[in-house]
Design a protein around this nucleic acid. Sequence first.
DNA 1: ATTCTCATTGCAACCGGTTGCAAAAATACA
DNA 2: TGTATTTTTGCAACCGGTTGCAATGAGAAT
Lengths: 334, 334
Amino acid sequence: MPVTLKEVAERAGVSRSAVSRTFTDGASVSDKMRRKVEKAALELGYSPNALASSLTTGRTKLIGLVSNNFHNPIFLQVFDLFTRGLQDKGLRPLLVNLSDELEPGNSVRMLRQYSVDGVVVASSTLPPEFARAFRDAGVPVVHSFGRYSSSPEVHVVTIDNREAGRLAARTLVSRGYTDVAFLGGPETATSTQDRYAGFMSELALHPEIRSSYSFAEAYSFDAGRREMLRLLNLKPSEAYFCGDDVLSIGALSAIADRGLSCPGDIGIIGLNDMEMAGWENINLTTIHQPIEQIISSSIELMLALLENPDRYPEARIYSCPVVERGTLRPPPTA
Amino acid sequence: MPVTLKEVAERAGVSRSAVSRTFTDGASVSDKMRRKVEKAALELGYSPNALASSLTTGRTKLIGLVSNNFHNPIFLQVFDLFTRGLQDKGLRPLLVNLSDELEPGNSVRMLRQYSVDGVVVASSTLPPEFARAFRDAGVPVVHSFGRYSSSPEVHVVTIDNREAGRLAARTLVSRGYTDVAFLGGPETATSTQDRYAGFMSELALHPEIRSSYSFAEAYSFDAGRREMLRLLNLKPSEAYFCGDDVLSIGALSAIADRGLSCPGDIGIIGLNDMEMAGWENINLTTIHQPIEQIISSSIELMLALLENPDRYPEARIYSCPVVERGTLRPPPTA
DNA sequence: ATTCTCATTGCAACCGGTTGCAAAAATACA
DNA sequence: TGTATTTTTGCAACCGGTTGCAATGAGAAT
């Protein structure tokens, strides 16, 4: 049904190569030829078949975008930025929804069948081994929001989650809280593990401060809400570092339900600085994760990787400032 | 770099056709042959190139998923359900982020270049002409969440937005509100237009009721919040039908900020019944949009369409019940 | 054992393009 | 104007598979 190169060639009375070349930039075609071909192509409504050409060129311009977080609204923004960013560079995102799957095998196989030029793993929960499976299969890969490592095996663009955890702890300590807790996302998520580890390592420097921790089932509003409701039924801490803004906002909702106030009764610090965190009636103090930068850097890195697949693996770490709003009490006046 | 059919054939000492046939189901291969080939394939780590085969078979199993709403969290669920549903059927979603683009030309061209087998337009804002452009280009298309028409030109799976508007109006009237308003999404969105039209047409039956309307800039929390803040500075109505839950929740946040109560001072009814609407501290009365059903039906329809592209266009309409929660005052007791 | 079927296999052409190479055409240089 | 050089063009092979067709082989029927 669609028009092929051959038909255009026949109509223009030229060889197939000539047609191919007018649609390949950098190829040698005279102006006269180009005009003839373009005329015929226009009349026929021809546009080249990207997949057929990929057979010989070895490039599909397809990029696998694999993710497993379809509950955290932050990821809507992530998809928005990734799809737009890739499109702007002439690349096409082939979306893979991992959901509960943990083994990379299927995704690797599938994405190789479709000859993707590269893969972006956009997930803060998957371990580095996941992305490595793509590299091992010879597919250029960037892991965005992944676990930081000082000797990365695959390219990773992310924040230092341990440092974020330490920062949260330091912030709570500086406010004079003496009984604090970590309310994390799923325990299997690398980001949860790292934020937890950082948080606790900083608190270890302050033995006078009591600490505890627990984990929500997912990075979602509901999970945060449920977990905080559970904690409120026990003996809640003075302040919580929630592993993510959605957890924080869920927790705030639980606190409000119980008729408690924040920061009056309980302090909360989140992580991400999602749009909602800035709403006046939420006004969440949180640690900002520079999502735009991480994504644009990931795309840039992917482009470089497509140029040179053997590029030495690098970790790009972005820093995370605290955004002061209204869910922590002010520092004690000296 | 990846292993090809030819290499497998050589290793197994058979013809290329034989290898192809063992990987094509329905083809005629003896058990002995199959075993030989599978052994060789396994040893070499072969998996067939889906794009190469698409050249001859004419099917890529690629489905274009085009959307333009990357701000409404409901769409995260939409993407989740679509990608999972398509994957389960062996199809691969090629995501297209329309953003501000209104013309279908580019998307059509791009998706045809990638020889997608079909296209799902997932958008409540794009006009039917958008989807029609795909049909006109010979690409099977399903418009999910699109505008309902009694003589559809393309397949559409959706709700009757006009009826939803009428239902909202009837509900407000039944609660005894006498000064009501429509707070819609962007005025250019078909869903906004239809909900508005339905709302007003029902109110026309009650000339004693005062009505007004206005539009938020987008289907997003922030836009709803901003618009409600603006309205509160003027003379607000008794109750609002917000064109969407995110607008409602934004509006609720504005109302709370002003120290007003809902439903005490102002009533709100939303549309969608997103997860957050059920939170205790939001507890939004809203009109339920059956997203799961719409999406699974869309996928099912797409599969049928791939079987028979000339299937007669149909509109599948799902009904929308009111979900009673706590943001409207109860009906006046008789 | 012979003939007839029918399943299996390989050959070769094809899907829609790209590209190295050599011939042809255009341009530069003398 | 003739020759050297460069650009443009077409041929044909190739990318990684699929498939119609005819040849082969195995089993069934006689």
